[in-house]
């Protein structure tokens, strides 16, 4: 029992994988530790880069800290009592936890899409227009119309909704609601989009539509996506990171991870072996 513990600590002591070479870092995490209350640590010494215009997939068993780390990237964890973080996370070289960063503005720059589509109980139009109004992105109504249209087009939802913009967002199908949430995120013109299991509640067709959308979005945005689907990670990401017990075990080109991962723990996980 004790021996196993030592072995696992050794196995987890160092992250393997290629450092980011094909790309410019957009977000960098350095020696990041996250605690829920003082005594329970959820993330240990994580170092990882999100490359501009690339998709980083985050995979790993339930409870390994994927959502925790993702939420650090736009300071969503600030809202959780007792949650604290050490280390440094930078966006374009600027420390996002420094005192002169406004978390609300940060979250506009680093948007988030959640597992369950969560449209506001408002019209489709207002769902998308909410952020731009809040952040003063449009100066008049016709500009706002343009932003809404543009965002819905980018999210691949325009055709289906252009004649029902005043209908409630909650009346859409699950896949459409998720695309609405993506349109809402895009509307505030973020640089980075964080997605936490964005298709886990969707059928294969809706999933394929979202995946295709992510593929199109990455030319304008930087994306990090948490997923429990190995195949999804393999299909959509440029790089893939594997987390285990709060530690980053491996981060590598996705091509490598799914054909010849460097770390045995990654291999055990993606091939469905006992770890």
């Amino acid at each position: 029992m004790n021996n196993n513990k030592v072995e696992l600590d050794q196995q987890l002591s160092e992250t393997v994988g290629k450092p980011l070479i094909n790309g410019t870092p957009k977000i960098t995490c350095r020696d990041v530790n996250v605690f829920y209350n003082q005594d329970s640590q959820a993330i240990f010494d994580v170092n990882v880069d999100l490359a501009k215009n690339q998709i980083l997939a985050m995979i790993g068993p339930s409870g390994c800290g994927k959502s925790t780390l993702l939420r650090c990237l736009n300071r969503m964890n600030d809202t959780i009592d007792g949650c604290s973080i050490t280390g440094k996370i930078s966006l374009d070289g600027e420390d996002i936890y420094s005192n002169d960063i406004d978390p609300v503005l940060l979250r506009a720059k680093v948007g988030m899409v959640f597992q369950k589509p969560n449209p506001f109980p408002k019209s489709i139009y207002d769902n998308v227009a909410y952020g731009p109004r809040l952040h003063g992105i449009a100066t008049n109504n016709s500009e706002l119309d343009d932003v809404v249209e543009e965002s819905l087009i980018k999210a691949g939802l325009w055709k289906e909704t252009k004649d029902r913009l005043n209908k409630p967002g909650t009346g859409l199908s699950g896949g459409q609601q998720q695309r609405l949430c993506i349109a809402r995120t895009i509307a505030v013109r973020p640089d980075v989009i964080l997605m936490d299991e964005p298709t886990s509640a969707l059928d294969p067709i809706a999933t394929a539509t979202i995946e295709e959308l992510m593929h199109e979005l990455k030319s304008s945005y930087t994306i990090a996506v948490v997923t429990h689907s190995m195949q999804q990670a393999a299909r959509i990401s440029d790089r893939c990171s594997y987390f285990h017990l709060g530690r980053l075990v491996e981060v590598n080109d996705t091509n490598i991870v799914f054909t010849n991962p460097e770390h045995e723990l990654t291999e055990n996980y993606i091939t469905g072996r006992f770890g």
């Binding site: 190995m230 991870v257 993606i270 091939t271």
Partner: peptide, 9 residues
């Protein structure tokens, strides 16, 4: 099964 890594190889 959509094999990966060593299973795929």
């Amino acid at each position: 099964r959509q094999p990966t890594a060593i299973d795929l190889r």
